[in-house]
C-alpha cells in the first residue's frame, strides 16, 4: 500500500497495463517527450519507446480514427484528449465510428479515450467542461468518471481490458488534491458498479467525480444536525448501476442527485426517471437535484464558484428534502 494521488494512480495503471500487455499503446498530443499537459504520461515514452507512445499532430479526429483502426488489428490504444473539451472536435469518430462498430458489423473497438475534465481550476469555457452526457446518450460506448485514486487505477485497467470503446473522464480538480492508499500491483474495479461512500437512512445522495466529494462534505455537515445521508458514487455513468440506485432509494425513500454537469439533460434527469419507474412507491418526497446551471463554465473565480455545486448548496437541498 502506498498513498498516491489520482494522477499518479492513472499513470500507474498505464505503466502496469503497458508492461503487462504489448498490445496496449498510447497516443495523443504532447504525451510522449513532454509527458502530457498534466504530466499523466510522464516517463511512459522513456520506458516503452516511440512505437508505443506516440506524439500526434493536433488532430483529434485523426487520433480517435487511428485508434479505431489500431483496435481492429487487436491493439488496445489509449488516446488522450489534452483537455476533454476537445472531444467535441472528434464527436463523429467517437459516436458514429467507434460506438456503432460492434452493433453494425460485429467489430469490437477496444479503445480508451481519456482526458482531464471538469471545473474548479479557472479553466474557463473551453478547459473546464463535463461533456459526459453527450456520450452517455450514445449506445455502444462506456463512460467512466471516477472520484478516487483507487477507483481511477482499477477502472482504467478495466477500461483498457474492455472490448468496447470506453471514455475515461479524469476530473482535473482531483488530480493532485486527494491522496489515497492504493493497493500496489494488479487489481481492477468493475465498470458499471457504483460505490456506497457513506451509509445513511434519511436520504440518498447520488453523485460522481468531484461532486461526489462535495456530496460527502455536505453529508458530514448534515450528520451534525442529525440528518443521515447515504452517499452513492456512480463511478460509471454508462452502463448505469440501476440496482445500486434503486436499492438505496428503496431504503431511504428520498433522492437528491448532485452533479457538476449542467442541469438540462444531465444524468439527474435520467436517474429521476429510473426511480419513478422502479421505486415510485418507495418515494417519500420529490426527486431533488443540485447541478451546475445551464450555462458554459465561466472564467472569473466568483462566477465559477457560483456555477459549481457547493457543499452548502447540497446541504441546503438535502435539509429541505429531509424535512419534506
Amino acid at each position: 500500500m502506498a498513498e498516491i494521488t489520482m494522477l499518479e494512480a492513472i499513470r500507474e495503471a498505464l505503466f502496469e497495463e503497458m508492461e503487462r500487455d504489448p498490445t496496449v499503446v498510447a497516443l495523443g498530443e504532447d504525451i510522449g517527450v513532454y509527458g502530457g499537459a498534466f504530466k499523466v504520461t510522464e516517463g511512459l515514452l522513456a520506458r516503452f519507446g516511440t512505437e508505443r507512445v506516440m506524439d500526434t499532430p493536433i488532430s483529434e479526429t485523426a487520433i480517435v480514427g487511428a485508434a479505431c483502426g489500431m483496435s481492429y488489428l487487436g491493439l488496445r490504444p489509449v488516446a488522450e484528449m489534452q483537455f476533454i473539451d476537445f472531444i467535441a472536435c472528434c464527436f463523429n469518430q467517437v459516436t458514429n465510428f467507434a460506438a456503432k462498430s460492434h452493433y453494425r458489423w460485429g467489430a469490437p473497438a477496444p479503445l480508451v479515450l481519456r482526458g482531464p475534465s471538469g471545473g474548479g481550476v479557472h479553466g474557463g469555457p473551453f478547459h473546464s467542461a463535463n461533456p459526459e452526457m453527450y456520450f452517455v446518450h450514445t449506445p455502444g460506448l462506456k463512460v467512466v468518471y471516477p472520484s478516487t485514486p483507487g477507483d481511477a487505477k482499477g477502472l482504467l485497467k478495466s477500461a483498457i481490458r474492455d472490448n468496447n470503446p470506453v471514455l475515461f473522464f479524469e476530473h482535473k480538480f482531483l488530480y493532485r488534491r486527494i491522496k489515497e492508499d492504493v493497493p500496489a500491483g494488479d487489481f481492477t474495479v468493475p465498470i458499471g458498479k457504483a460505490a456506497l461512500r457513506r451509509e445513511g437512512s434519511d436520504l440518498t445522495i447520488v453523485s460522481y467525480a468531484a461532486a461526489a466529494h462535495t456530496a460527502l462534505e455536505a453529508a458530514q455537515a448534515l450528520a451534525k444536525e442529525g440528518i443521515q445521508a447515504e452517499v452513492l458514487d456512480l463511478r460509471t455513468l454508462l452502463p448505469l448501476d440501476r440496482d445500486a440506485i434503486l436499492a438505496s432509494v428503496k431504503k431511504t425513500g428520498k433522492l437528491l442527485v448532485v452533479h457538476e454537469d449542467t442541469r438540462t439533460g444531465g444524468i439527474a434527469g435520467e436517474i429521476s426517471a429510473l426511480v419513478c419507474e422502479g421505486a415510485f412507491e418507495d418515494l417519500d418526497g420529490p426527486v431533488a437535484r443540485v447541478t451546475a446551471p445551464d450555462t458554459p463554465v465561466p472564467y472569473a473565480p466568483p462566477l465559477e464558484e457560483a456555477f459549481l455545486p457547493s457543499a452548502e448548496k447540497v446541504a441546503a437541498a438535502a435539509r429541505e428534502l429531509a424535512e419534506y
Binding site: T61, G65, A66, A67, G69, Y72
Partner: peptide, 18 residues
C-alpha cells in the same frame, strides 16, 4: 472518416510486423 481509421490500421500493421 476512413482515412484516419485506415491510417491506424496501417500503423498497427507496421507495429505488429505485418
Amino acid at each position: 472518416d476512413l482515412i484516419p481509421v485506415m491510417t491506424g490500421v496501417a500503423m498497427a500493421g507496421r507495429y505488429l510486423g505485418h
